[in-house]
Computed example of a mutant assay.
Amino acid sequence: MPALSATSKGAATRDAILDHAYAIACSAGLEGLSIGALAHAVGMSKSGVFAHFGSREDLQLAVLETAAQRFVSHVFQPAVRRPRGLARLRAVIEQWFDWVRHEDDGGCLFLAAVSEYDDRPGPQRDLLLRQDRQWRQALAKAVSLAIEEGELRPDIDVEQLVFEIYALPLLVHHDAGLYGYEAARSRGIRAFERLIEAAALP
């Protein structure tokens, strides 16, 4: 097997650091992510971590980007393989409900980050806003395709329906920790189907 190049080794090390940083941030939040704790977790010096990320802020932004890539891979990429229309929209919601399980990583990084940065202007908040808008746009696209397929009424307020659909994974996440995931998911699915029923063609 050929030896890895210095560039490949650097990328692999950076990915390993981000894996550990993501795990820490899921439990402690982005503000709980310290270079010292991360360096200890990956068995590196602080200067070694700083060689890959010029600042704690750069590290936080990279973790948010990593989280977004994982979210898109888990929620939206499987859904686009489904037929356009309600089948695809349902797949998005089912995958999103599955995402909120967080059995292995301690919690949803995005919900924690929004709580941390919703009233704190800066690059972290700006990135969160861009990511959030992209996901709402993806939901709006799925709703619009369902309209084009004749499965939803053409006169529905797409933005309002997206708002209501988007609220469901947030509430499922909230209830899953307090009352159990399966019960929360079941209620989330029922709530989603009621929204679709109200928006469907007669």
Rank of each mutant, 00 (worst) to 15 (best):
L33D: 10
L18W: 05
H20G: 06
A176Y: 01
T13K: 12
S115V: 04
G180F: 04
I24R: 05
K46F: 01
S5N: 08
G177W: 07
G188L: 03
D119R: 13
E159I: 04
G188Q: 06
L109V: 14
E182D: 15
E151Y: 03
P123H: 05
Q95R: 08
A51I: 00
I24A: 13
V75I: 15
G177V: 06
P83E: 04
Q77K: 08
G10E: 11
L109E: 07
A87Y: 01
R125F: 12
Y22K: 02
A191V: 03
S5Y: 09
E193F: 05
V42Y: 03
E57Y: 00
H74G: 01
Q160W: 07
R81W: 05
V162D: 03
Q77T: 14
D132K: 04
D157L: 09
E57S: 14
V143M: 07
L168E: 04
Y117F: 15
F53I: 07
G188W: 06
R136T: 07
H40Q: 15
A91G: 09
V80P: 00
D118V: 11
L64Q: 05
D119P: 00
L171Y: 07
A41Q: 13
H74F: 13
T7I: 14
D119E: 15
S47L: 09
Y179A: 14
L145W: 13
D98N: 11
L128Y: 09
I189F: 07
L111Y: 12
I165N: 02
E182Y: 00
L109T: 10
P202L: 13
